[in-house]
Amino acid sequence: MRVSKLPARKARILALRYLGAGVVTLLFLFPVYWLFMISFKTPDEIYHVPPLWIPGQIQFSNYYVLFKDGDVLAILNSLIVASVSSGIAIVLGTLCAYSLARFGTGGENLAMWIISQRMIPPIAVVFPIFLIYVYFGLVDSYFGLILLYTAFNLPYVIWMMRGYIVDVPLELEESALVDGLNRWEVIWKVVFPMVRPGLMATSVFTFAFAWNDFLFALVLTRTEVITFPVMLTHYFGGQSNFWAKIAAMSVLGTLPIFVAVSVMQRYLVRGISLGAVKG
């Protein structure tokens, strides 16, 4: 009797959990679904009252318009700025992190100062940076935006990579030193391969930071290096909003991040918790 009852109870609980999981997922994904769906709708379908939940057909004219009008250049700008800046931040930050982790350079104070840089709210520095950029003619330049994102990503990279490097057994490096490598070679041939998962995960987050940033891009770009979030806000008008463009642009701007994060899912938790949870 009891033997047959127990699995039945377990099955019921499992069914309830699937139901809960389904409802939660539905709630959280519905807005994303709505966004995707609008990007495939024709104007008639978008401005239909009551709203249509399923487009009549999947058609790509909203995307086509973005390409035709050159709006996708904003995506390209974002791609350039985000990848170059996170590349530089990763290399410089990891080297710095190695020094902090292995030689204790600057002591605990330097490490604390670096992470405190991460806590500075962008709004507090964006204005003076803007004034300085105007002075040096860096506004609306790739260099200016890349420099800024590099600087804002560096504390994060240093903090995260320091954690990953500390996890590398010291003996691996010592063994390489005895075997005939110099310090530079040790970093390149032993440390970098050992922290490669950490490097990849951290790059996803630095890339995402630069990719998703709006405030700096809003202030420091004009026409040439407009990034996609800034471009997106241009579609909002006082009276009429260009829903089709907003939706299509949003989808384009979400896909790269979603792909990167899906690949790196394993490291997500350590990354977003600033290393507090080693997932």
């Binding site: 966004l35 990719w211 709006f214 991040i257 979603f258």
Partner: peptide
């Protein structure tokens, strides 16, 4: 995870 990783502007 999707909502968290997309740009706040989006």
């Amino acid at each position: 995870v999707l909502p968290t990783v997309i740009s706040p502007i989006v």
